[in-house]
Design a protein around this nucleic acid. Structure first.
Length: 468
RNA sequence: GCCGCGUUGGUCAAUCGGUUAAGACGCAUCCCUUUCACGGAUGAAUGACGAGUUCGAUUCUCGUACGCGGUACCA
């Protein structure tokens, strides 16, 4: 929510997250997810708190002031860079060569601070210490303290880094379980030490470092860039960055059902050991167990994501589906009655993977096709077939009950009578009615759009064909 | 480079020392349908490599390779 990098609050981010949670069915506005008894929750409003603990760490010798400028740090990094050590760390050896309260001494440091010299507070990583902790999904994890550097805790602008903030916040907010991405594992020893140094070790949360979601192609963790590049969303809902103005596509707008989105995400890195793949949120809550979370990252597969959505479209009630689609089609100017719309939706849902597929699969129920795929009709078209359709119009006209079966019977007996294979006539009929080679069974379409429309469209089709 | 974490088909993955190594997505073929799909059936495709422990290793241990993460006054 807070972009500490820029020290600027990202406008609208809070509401966006609440909206996403709500869309996913997590009821953020009713639960304890946002707000609560341990506020304030914005980092900028907690500055004093972080300050207090950073100061405490310095007083107790667990942290120190560092006055090095960015340039000085760069110099240090280039100077000590070697093939063996391409990224020199601000650690127990190098801190002796830098400008900080350890090398400068208490008085000189105080003088610099009084002179308003910018400074940061860094953790003083201990030497030759084995930092270890239990991770819920990885078991015991070990780090040698010599290999992790003196991370900055408090920045020159007075804002905390994630390292300080997460420890202080988790303690003050009584966090019991800290779940985060695997990319945080290398920083964990800093956090563990902070919990100890601050004297809170017994209140330390249980750790879980979750596997990452990886790019479907190449290498690395999935990023929002991959969505644009490969044509799939990476955000739950559309997110327009107020700073850059760039739009990140969301699963919701792409036509995903929230249940499918949650389901798909849950199956990336976890399964319950059975063959079940489709889970409701309730089932997930019930069956999810940390023990079964994988250690390795999983590549995102958009095809599979769409498959989940297809499954969920099938198990979503027609009423709900209709509501969603009507909302989606609000600018389509649909003239028909609700029962008709529902009937259409029921007819085409099984061939839809995204909510946006519904229009492509059903527009011809609401309006005549605007173009025809006559190329696929033309090749086998002839005068006899034209005559057939003209007679068919007459028979249709006389038909009392317009059911798929009655239309089909009429159509087929007329075909036999004219000595033409019914199969060869079905494709032309389809193209006349819907414009191309797609859609539900033809006679069902004819029955659904009605006698008048069917006849009109056949006439139009015949006219189109005679022009060729 | 160093440190950490990983490694079962193209992808998601089951197996918790003994199996013909599940299932799903995708792919191919067939059936259904004289449309496109859905659905059904079938098929191709997997234990990175090398040691060790063991009567027996996909499973345990070690090494190698590979992948990912980290190595910022970003999170």
């Amino acid at each position: 929510i807070e972009d500490t990098d820029q020290n600027r609050f990202v406008e609208g981010a809070e509401q966006y997250i609440i909206d996403c949670l709500n869309w996913c069915g997590l009821n953020a506005d009713e639960g304890p997810h946002v707000g609560g008894p341990f506020g304030p929750y914005r980092q900028s409003e907690r500055k004093n708190i972080y300050w207090q603990y950073a100061d405490q760490l310095v007083q107790q010798g667990f942290a120190y002031y560092a006055f090095d400028t960015t340039q000085e740090l760069e110099e240090m990094r280039t100077r000590f860079k070697s093939d063996d050590n391409p990224q020199p760390q601000y650690n127990f050896v190098l801190r002796e060569k830098m400008r900080n309260s350890i090398t400068l001494g208490e008085h000189e440091s105080q003088r610099l601070i009084d002179e308003k010299t910018p400074y940061v507070i860094r953790i003083k990583m201990p030497q030759d210490e084995e930092v270890e902790f239990d991770d819920m999904i990885r078991g015991r994890v070990h780090f040698n303290s010599n290999l992790v550097d003196d991370r900055v805790l408090l920045k020159a602008d007075g804002m905390p880094t994630y390292h300080l903030a997460v420890v202080v916040d988790d303690y003050l907010m009584k966090i019991t379980h800290a779940f985060r991405g695997e990319e945080w594992l290398p920083s964990a020893p800093v956090h563990i030490l902070l919990w100890k140094y601050l004297g809170w070790e017994k209140d330390m949360p249980q750790w879980a470092h979750l596997p990452l979601i990886l790019k479907p192609d190449g290498h690395g963790k999935l990023s929002k860039r991959d969505g644009d590049r490969l044509g799939f969303p990476v955000f739950a809902m559309d997110w327009k960055d107020p700073k850059s103005g760039e739009l990140n596509a969301g699963f919701r707008e792409k036509g995903f059902l929230p249940e499918a989105f949650v389901n798909m995400l849950a199956m990336l890195g976890w399964n319950d050991g059975s063959e079940q793949e489709v889970f409701t949120l309730e089932e997930l809550v019930d069956k999810f167990s940390m023990e079964r979370v994988h250690k390795g990252g999983a590549k995102f597969d958009y095809e599979k994501a769409k498959w989940f959505n297809h499954r969920w479209i099938q198990r979503t009630s027609d009423d709900l589906l209709t509501d969603l689609l009507l909302l989606l089609w609000k600018d389509k100017n649909i003239q028909t009655e609700l029962p008709f719309v529902q009937k259409v939706i029921r007819m085409v849902k099984e061939r839809c993977f995204l909510l946006s597929d519904f229009w492509d699969q059903s527009f011809f129920f609401f309006e005549p096709p605007s173009s025809y795929d006559m190329a696929s009709v033309k090749v086998k078209w002839n005068e006899e077939k034209k005559l057939f359709f003209e007679s068919f119009i007459d028979e249709l006209q006389a038909l009392q009950i317009l059911e798929p079966i009655s239309i089909e019977t009429t159509f087929k007996s007329l075909a036999t009578q004219k000595n033409i294979k019914a199969g060869e006539l079905q494709l032309p009929l389809r193209v006349m009615l819907v414009g191309g080679k797609f859609g539900p069974p033809v006679f069902e379409i004819a029955a659904t759009i009605g006698k008048e429309q069917t006849i009109l469209r056949i006439k139009n089709g015949l006219a189109e064909l005679s022009e060729l």
